[in-house]
Design a protein around this nucleic acid. Structure first.
Lengths: 331, 331
DNA sequence: GTGAAAGCGCTAACAC
DNA sequence: GTGTTAGCGCTTTCAC
């Protein structure tokens, strides 16, 4: 259907090898040949077929990013960072959404196995450490945002424990002592790490940890609603809530208002991530910022290095977080 | 590096053709051969190289979706719908973000030209009608969400004019007569169409159109802020604002509160899209719902039909919208 | 500076 | 039911 390298060669009166050389910027071509080839390319509207090229070169210059959901601006920003860096190196990023299901994730990983892509970045995964380690032996993969304990796989993430520690410390410094924690039921390592940070901040301030101030479920929005219902029903209502995600924090804020509890005054709420919505909300939401662009750039930089290198970098890279105080903590 | 079909054939003691037959579910293979092949596949951890397959078959079963931004849950939902339908037919969806720039979009379109993908869905585009028509002659492309006037290209979108008409009529039925319009400077056809719907709704109710109640800029969040500043400064402040997107509506709401104007009471605000945030906001946001999943499914259904068909369907398909009243209009 | 030709991994027509 | 083989479009070695 469309023109091939042969057509161009015939049109230009040269061999396919010469066309290929022009295409790939090889300098060993006479000016005359080159211009004839370029004319032919234009005339035939030729565009090289990458399937042929990639098959021959055993590479695609495409990296797949698998993310749990399409609707999380945290992930969107990370992908933007990935894209920005990748394009500098001639790579493209494509994305797929796993909906947090192992089957979808496995299906999408086929693109790696069948050589449709050169590498994969997982923004959260259902694979366990063993599986990841095995995969990493034969393929180039990386984790971003959410690490897996025991996985010796290239990882880029914030220091969740330290981020949570700083957030809770900021609440303590504002005079709070009854600080609730809203996390998940241990399925996400980030939540567990943030819970540890919460506990350490309390400990350092000499505030005893109280199990009744902890609510664990999942990252779903409605869990924030349930959590606020629970906190509001406690004998002594907490004066502050630290949630492991902005979405949960927003749900808490929303529910608090419905219950007639004024956020930023009667109760302070702090999230994690610094998604775009934090500044749009009323009140604006205090949070711990993850440097999404930087994370995306870094993970791609390291992954592409791995793709081109025999010995794999399987380090765990930590990027800096930042506590941001807004109206939801009375600022 | 990884095993090829030849390795499997050798291991199983059959020819590559037989392996290929097993791989493709061709029934003309003896049970004995098939099981030997399957054993070999498992033993060698073989996964077919799709570059070879695709090159041979002149197809990739991958569709590219180019969207203006990664951070819009409207697009995210449409992609989810696309993905859902595509996977049923053995297709994968990959995404790329153009940031509303012609250069990025053109760069990404190369994946279509170089045969990395079988088709493209554009969620908004910088191409003009002529270019699109030319492209559509040689490639399978579709528009979704945002049509281009004069483009005879497969398109799926809501009826923007009618959606806006219904939204503004709903405001009128709640007693509003001073209804402002917040749109864009004609770069997006959807905004222009929605402005027409706004005007027609006023006309039908016998309310004269007043240019000073119209503010046009872009889809950016801060334009909503500017718009609210403008509306608040009018001699007679409008009692309602209809914005062409939820994001703009949310910006208006946010700014109104900062100005001490109570939304849902002093002023009603209505958006368009029904993004997830509408239900999370305080107050919740009234809007016109676009059936994102359905749009995604439909555009993929039709595009894949086109891919497999000689004569192209270049219809403009309209999907149903729905007005949803929430707290921002006092409901 | 240029061309001939092998071969990347796969599918499918053809022969048996 | 199975094997042989051509060839998809491209890059790259090797000769000249």
């Amino acid at each position: 259907m469309s023109a091939t390298i042969k057509d161009v060669a015939r049109e230009a009166g040269v061999s396919v090898a010469t066309v290929s050389r022009v295409l790939n910027g090889n300098c060993n071509v006479s000016e005359d040949s080159a211009s004839r080839v370029n004319d032919a390319i234009k005339k035939l509207h030729y565009s090289p077929n990458f399937l042929g090229r990639n098959l021959r070169k055993c590479e695609t210059n495409v990296i797949l990013c698998i993310m749990p959901t399409s609707e999380h601006s945290l992930y969107s920003k990370i992908v933007t960072g990935m894209q920005r860096y990748a394009s500098k190196l001639g790579y493209d990023i494509i994305t797929a959404f796993s909906d947090n299901t192992a089957t979808a994730e496995a299906r999408q990983m086929n693109m790696l196995f069948n050589r449709t892509v050169d590498g994969v970045v997982l923004l959260g995964t259902m694979y366990d450490a063993d599986s990841l380690n095995k995969l990493a032996q034969n393929y180039d993969i990386a984790l971003c945002c959410e690490g897996v304990p025991g996985a010796d796989v290239l990882t880029v993430a914030v220091d969740d424990e330290s981020g949570a520690f700083d957030a809770v410390t900021a609440l303590i410094e504002k005079g709070h002592r009854d600080i609730a924690f809203l996390g998940t039921k241990s399925e996400a390592i980030s939540s567990t790490a943030r819970e540890n940070g919460y506990k350490k901040a309390l400990e350092k301030a000499g505030i005893p940890f109280r199990e009744e101030l902890v609510y664990r479920d999942s990252y779903e929005y409605n869990c924030g609603t349930d959590a606020m219902n629970y906190f509001a029903g406690l004998e002594k209502r907490p004066s502050a809530v630290f949630a492991v995600s902005d979405l949960l924090a927003i749900a808490v804020i929303h529910r608090a208002y419905e219950l007639g509890i004024e956020v930023g005054k009667d109760i302070s709420v702090m999230g994690f991530d610094n998604i775009t919505m934090c500044e749009m909300m009323l009140p604006t939401v205090s949070t711990v910022e993850q440097p999404c662009f930087k994370m995306g750039e870094l993970v791609i930089e390291k992954l592409i290095e791995n793709i081109h290198s025999a010995k794999k970098d399987n380090n765990y890279y930590t990027v800096d977080h930042k506590v941001i105080m807004r109206q939801s903590t009375g600022d």
